[in-house]
Nucleic acid binder design. Structure first.
Lengths: 336, 336
DNA sequence: CTGAAAGCGCTTACAG
DNA sequence: CTGAAAGCGCTTACAG
């Protein structure tokens, strides 16, 4: 490892001077010295030691990426296509701004606090944190944080970057409505957060001509249900009567297609189905799944730039940003 | 941030002593002082500053995770289910051993070198690096490294953790053979590395009773092919004649199922299909995909422990380790 | 058993 | 325009 001192010795100046050219303090160094130092710097492939920088700058330029719950939409959090894509885009974005991303397990709040303090992390991006955990975290750790896809209870201040879940739900509800599916059911794993917003959009779309969409149409599929098959068996009649099922995730939609198929249901002839996320594989479902797609790259960029603003104490006009969403029409819906 | 000095002041000792209890040098400190210091340490929630540790210990305890090519099996590397699962398991493993994982974009070798030096990274885990890039990297960066799923040319020393690709291929070839598919075709994106090993296993299984499996049966599906549909159109006759297609990835297998279905082919009645990887969604394919599953958690653990050994200069008995693989039988193969 | 001191690689007032 | 010096938080010989 070549140090500043090494460079200084080589050129025959003090390390103060080398440091000055490193930071572009051109007024403090003569053109001549500058050039000489720049040349050697380049030649020796000098890179600063981050350990040293952490100490002197009191900042590490590390962004922590933390997953609050290890599972998310019934699979390992990092395995959900969208989270891993987010991570890769975030890392690119960070790297191009001279930041680094460290993965921190969010299982224990205390260990997030420990690691974030230890590393003097500049900011944190949080996935799938419950409100309780988030509160605890903010209490114990005073760092810039941005939450992803978060819908906290009212009056609870936080920064958030999400997608327009409501519009996603609306697009689906509207699309089904226009295909004459006016008593479609909405199926999600919870009654809160993203799921609930999607439902709201769905409901409004279904009610657009004065129709009524009661909460009877909001169905819960327990994420811990071991016997999904019997769930479909039990509800078969109800589902066939509804003629259309709008799921809050691709995974559940595809799972439904499989189970219903086994029960002799023809999709989309008997029942139309929609998903949410546009996972890599859902174009291969049979029939290919109609779903909602989000712009993950944009989301990662928004999250990073928002976090940067918080870190730098810049003015933030909106504490909660939502990236747009679009309907991807494939073949899992048939006009009724 | 509470520092060692703060603690020392509070207790009324020198920071040397505090440091000693921190490191369990029990013989150098009286029981009494020890207890007092431990108590305050706990009470104040002391955590060391990693910046400082990097400097004094000349080690950061950071493991870099680097993706050599941004795409992998035609999707973004971090998006392949197995890489993201690997990452999450690796992070757990690292955290439990007091290590940290930083994501480093592997697009440019020079930036890997830069970041790894800057952070004084302890070791690197490398995905999807070409041999050329890996050589360049080792030339410029003297760090402990473990490659994942790597098959370099002969005589090129390196540490590798992979899966038993050969056995995976064999299991598939054997399973097809036993279902009377003795002229099945193997389809992959390349003729090297994992793909080639899988082919070798496949071939050996198909040749088990003296039959011959010529390279005619090794088909390449160009990963950059834009018009996959016409690929299947063109080869339809050949594929129907073969009656079984063994793919080197689930993605391609599912894609094939979709395209063949559109061409009026019945799967598995007309053509049997197998995949490789056991992606989250392939149980939802229709028919559900028979494929090879690997133990990603074990792989992550092996990779980490191997890297740790290299870092600590421990004796390593095997430079290349392979985790086992298993056949997951679903419904995409029909006895011929 | 305890602590003073040097050193890790850098930045940043400050003096000249 | 240039550099000596203090300081960031820790560890580690070493002296007592």
């Amino acid at each position: 490892m070549v140090t500043l001192q090494d460079i200084a010795d080589k050129v025959g100046v003090s390390r103060t001077t080398v440091s000055n050219v490193l930071h572009g303090n051109t007024k403090r160094v003569s053109k001549q010295t500058m050039d000489k130092i720049s040349k050697i710097l380049e030649q020796e492939g000098y890179v600063p030691n981050m350990g040293s920088l952490i100490m002197t700058k009191n900042s590490s330029r590390i962004i922590g990426l933390t997953l609050g719950s290890s599972t998310f939409h019934h699979m390992h959090a990092l395995q959900t296509p969208f989270i891993s894509e987010f991570l890769s885009k975030l890392q690119l974005e960070a790297e191009s701004h001279g930041y680094y991303v460290m993965i921190i397990s969010g299982k224990e709040v205390s260990s997030v606090v420990d690691i974030a303090s230890r590393w003097n992390i500049d900011g944190l991006i949080l996935f799938a944190f419950s409100e309780e955990k988030y509160r605890l975290l903010t209490q114990k750790l005073n760092k810039s944080m941005v939450l992803i896809d978060y819908y906290p209870s009212k009056g609870f201040f936080h920064y958030n970057v999400g997608i327009d879940d409501y519009s996603g739900g609306y697009l689906i509800g509207d699309y089904l409505y226009n295909n004459n599916h006016k008593s479609a059911l909405f199926i999600a794993e919870t009654k809160k957060d993203s799921d609930y917003q999607r439902w709201l959009g769905f409901k409004d779309a279904q009610e657009q001509n004065g129709e009524i969409c009661t909460s009877y149409r909001y169905n819960i599929l327990n994420p811990h249900l071991s016997d999904v098959k019997s769930y479909y068996q039990t509800n078969l009649e109800k589902f066939i009567e509804a003629r259309a099922l709008a799921f809050s995730s691709d995974y559940r939609a595809m799972e439904a297609m499989q189970n219903l198929f086994q029960l002799g249901v023809n999709i989309p002839d008997d029942i139309s189905i929609t998903g949410f996320d546009d996972s890599l594989y859902c174009k291969f479902a049979r029939p290919a799944l109609t779903t909602i797609k989000q712009n993950v790259r944009l989301k990662a960029q928004l999250a990073f730039s928002q976090l940067l603003k918080i870190i730098n104490n810049e003015l933030i006009t909106e504490a909660s940003i939502h990236s747009p969403v679009e309907l991807v029409i494939r073949n899992s819906v048939k006009p009724y």
